[in-house]
């Protein structure tokens, strides 16, 4: 006989793994989720926008200004190769051999760039590597050309090699001192 009354919060439900669930516990988590979404935004320091503008103006004219040209160049290349339609419809093309090689090099360097003694020098390298990573995020939705992708991976590898070199130099210095 089926119990047709609506479920109560305290009703136990048996999970496939044998654990018991109650609606009130579930409801509590749902309530927490709603509360998380209800947390207010936080206003940054009133002067932050000014600092951002100053920093952006002070940085060398770099990728932001060069990119339209790079995009135009890669578009021209894509049209020439007759792959523009396929690229736009299917997302990013497969990695070139050069990009694959850079990725492999990057993976090999990873162990040498972890657990490094923290200081401003290594932190600066880590920031730069993370900055490159944030730009590489554009690869997944097809925003970056192969040329730009290769340039970024090359930059990442160069930074990691520098960081690994810092680590090696420190180890050598310590060995010499002690």
């Amino acid at each position: 006989m089926t119990d047709s009354r609506p479920p109560r919060a305290s009703d136990p439900l048996v999970q496939p793994d044998g654990k018991v669930t109650t609606l009130d516990a579930r409801g509590e988590i749902d309530g927490l989720r709603r509360s998380l979404r209800a947390l207010p935004d936080i206003e940054p320091d009133p002067e932050l926008w000014e600092r951002i503008q100053e920093q952006a103006a002070a940085r060398p004219k770099g990728m932001g200004q060069r990119l339209p040209l790079a995009v135009a160049a890669s578009l021209l290349l894509a049209v020439t190769a007759g792959i523009l339609g396929a690229n736009l419809l299917q997302g990013p093309p497969a990695d070139s051999a050069a990009i694959r090689a850079l990725k492999e090099r990057s993976m090999k360097l990873e162990p040498f760039t972890r657990n490094i003694h923290a200081d401003p020098v290594t932190a600066a390298f880590q920031y730069r590597i993370a900055d490159v990573d944030s730009q590489l995020a554009g690869v997944t939705d097809g925003r970056l050309s192969q040329a730009e992708t290769q340039r970024l991976w090359g930059r990442r590898v160069a930074l990691m090699e520098s960081l690994a070199e810092v680590r090696r130099a420190r180890a050598a210095l310590q060995a010499a001192v002690y």
Binding site: I52, A56, G64, P68, Q135, R143
Partner: peptide, 10 residues
């Protein structure tokens, strides 16, 4: 936002 200013064009 510094990144946004530099790269929004792309």
């Amino acid at each position: 936002f510094v990144s946004m200013i530099e790269r929004a064009g792309s």
